[in-house]
Design a protein around this nucleic acid. Sequence first.
DNA 1: CCATGTGAAAGCGTTCACAGCG
DNA 2: CGCTGTGAACGCTTTCACATGG
Lengths: 228, 228
Amino acid sequence: MAMRAAQTAARPLPEATLRRLPLYLRALVEASGERLLMLSSEELAARAGVNAAQVRKDLSQLGSYGTRGVGYDTELLRQQINRQLGLNREHNVAVIGAGNLGQALGNYRGFSERGFNVVAAFDTDPDKFGSRLGTAVVYPLSELARVVREKKITMALITTPAQVAQDIADRLVAAGVSSVLNFAPAVLTVAPHVSVRKVDLAVELQILGYYEHLRANHTAAPRATTIN
Amino acid sequence: MAMRAAQTAARPLPEATLRRLPLYLRALVEASGERLLMLSSEELAARAGVNAAQVRKDLSQLGSYGTRGVGYDTELLRQQINRQLGLNREHNVAVIGAGNLGQALGNYRGFSERGFNVVAAFDTDPDKFGSRLGTAVVYPLSELARVVREKKITMALITTPAQVAQDIADRLVAAGVSSVLNFAPAVLTVAPHVSVRKVDLAVELQILGYYEHLRANHTAAPRATTIN
DNA sequence: CCATGTGAAAGCGTTCACAGCG
DNA sequence: CGCTGTGAACGCTTTCACATGG
């Protein structure tokens, strides 16, 4: 039972694949709950809402964990995806800005479920200092550097107004944070060893709105997009 | 001054372009604030955090609104993007599920700023009925069909637990909603004339986590992704 | 003369179709 | 025999490089 495989990541997974792995994970957990030990790419695809060929391509990137003529071992595959995503590893996360969005993110269960622990929040409003935001406590922004170091925070979610986002990012990086997820409508520039990604909550709504707009004018094109 | 142009949409814009138009919009508004009447693709690209060639390709999809040898008229371009996105049109939006996420989305200013008005929220918890969620009131879920019709709601944000998401989607569609943005971890199936899109808030964090994981193991690859 | 607008090239991602293996 | 794993085809996106025109 020499369980060792290729230890970790062969080479970086394509982002498109990375983006779908959580879907498969969910489908696998669901299948596990139904006592299904094996799953074909066809079944997995149906549960995840994607194409079966895509499932096979994606999974083949992780290695050969399927059995020809049979399918994928639910449990084994789940473990492999978890390992590849580094989902065992726990990440300490800070939320900067304890407004509506910050509060929602701090309380969001989807994060802790996947090993992202929000261990601190920061704001400039003294009324908020010491209050709770999920499991985290709200600190004054001035404590940022100290708390980031003490709590070994490596990732941060920026939910501040756009004007201060770059300044916050600079301070986070200076304090040792290496991954930033930016919800503020601003373009951030950081040192090359830091990863930054942006989320615009309104973009998807806007795309939906565009298609509604199309349907309304151009009565000819129903053009329904069903993306899961 | 016959201001009439191509009236509306020539043909559907590619999604990749659609996704960046808001970035340009933001950059243009910013530039307007600085009294800049003209902007080159180079300057616009810098402000939006993308490549200049991409800006030109994207903008050329909307028509020829630039002047060779000069650049783009800030104000004109802003209007054209707004028109193309159907951003004048107002959309009535419902939020289903008044939990953390639902509350944050209901209060999110980014929506109303772009013409998406959250005019109703729904939940099954009687304690929440009648309470406020941004400008909207929380209704019992049983009132869904009536309120959707009365308030002419065409778009809905699903922030419920996964198990009920499909049922909610069915009821929304039956009541006349034509666009659904799904935040629940479930695959939704709807009639072909309805658009569904999915948002997974944890995906971007997961991708960041993956790169951290890579950097940690494979000490060789710094691999910083800076996506704006 | 200079920046737009655009064909053409290069790069990714998805889908197809089937060889290969359990 | 059936399903995985994968080369090859296809389509979409990005980038390049330059002809075009104000």
